[in-house]
């Protein structure tokens, strides 16, 4: 019975793909010529934008202080940074809300966003899908538990229910370093922390700056059990066909480093230049 269904599913799936694929191929066939023509000329020095004159940016604003939403406005260090970058490039920044685990795909697709900034850890596997700019911030992971939790060491996490943000480096770390855990992915960090509070999961793993911020603000019933030194760095991602944009952003970052803009932003958002 199951087998029958599976084979039908497979046949159906393949048929579906074949149809959509043909459509896509024919559709792309028409447009690819023009885009390849423009990208070949752009590749060296000029970058392309989804909307001319605007840097269209995707972010997952659930990661204060890096990016978060307040009264409907997307704010945070990353956001301030990318707006300054846009200013240096003479562009407007249009920052839009997207799920974290769709950022890489969206940027790789190349049709909806020019770049994404969202405390994205530079990672060679992500780099296969998208291009990273230079690193703009250093981070580590943190293990966060409820205050008074019976989990008191990293080793005690083995065999426990653990949560992390879907697609995050915390997720990768948990899966790779902990044994026999019941792992639950969450799309947004508030959900993850809500689940931690219910006791359904014993610990959550995410970036140390965001963890420290949550605990200092809304989540004073939680605590950092341990900082995991991963030395990971955040980068801005752009489409691989648009490396010129990454270079332009790198230049802007260098200028901002030189003219003290970055130090000012760090002072503003973290209370200290890092």
């Amino acid at each position: 019975m199951l087998k029958g269904k599976f084979s039908k599913a497979a046949v159906f799936g393949l048929a579906c793909i074949a149809v959509v694929g043909m459509l896509a191929l024919s559709a792309c066939g028409g447009s690819s010529q023009s885009s390849s023509a423009s990208s070949s000329s752009a590749a060296s020095d000029e970058y392309t934008l989804v909307t001319p004159g605007t840097l269209t940016v995707a972010t997952s604003p659930d990661y204060a202080p890096m990016e978060y939403q307040e009264n409907g406005e997307i704010k945070g260090y990353d956001i301030a940074l990318i707006k300054e970058v846009a200013k240096h490039l003479g562009l407007n920044a249009d920052v839009q809300n997207q799920a974290f685990d769709s950022l890489v795909t969206q940027v790789a697709g190349g049709k909806t966003f020019d770049c994404a900034i969202s405390a994205i850890t530079i990672d060679d596997e992500r780099a296969e899908q998208v291009a990273f700019t230079d690193a703009y911030y250093d981070s580590n992971l943190a293990i966060v538990v409820l205050k008074g939790s019976d989990v008191t060491s990293r080793d005690a996490l083995n065999g426990q229910a653990i949560g992390a943000q879907s697609g995050s480096s915390g997720e990768a770390w948990a899966k790779e370093n902990l044994k026999d855990i019941a792992y639950t992915p969450f799309q947004e960090t508030p959900d993850m922390l809500a689940a931690l509070r219910t006791g359904k999961i014993k610990a959550v793993i995410y970036d140390e700056p965001a963890a420290a911020y949550s605990i200092a603000h809304e989540y004073d019933d939680c605590d950092i059990l341990e900082v995991i030194p991963t030395g990971e760095q955040y980068g801005i991602i752009v489409n691989t066909d648009n490396v010129a944009l990454a270079e332009a952003i790198n230049n802007a970052l260098a200028e901002m480093q030189a003219d003290g803009t970055i130090a000012r932003l760090q002072q503003e958002w973290f209370g200290a230049a890092k």
Partner: peptide, 29 residues
């Protein structure tokens, strides 16, 4: 959304691992 491992979350776990939407299409099927 609340972490119950069901069809959607299984496919999302692969999506987040690979940065590729294909598992969602498989889920749709």
């Amino acid at each position: 959304a609340v972490g119950v491992m069901e069809l959607m979350l299984y496919s999302r776990s692969i999506v987040s691992l690979t940065g590729n939407m294909t598992p969602y299409i498989v889920a749709a099927c």
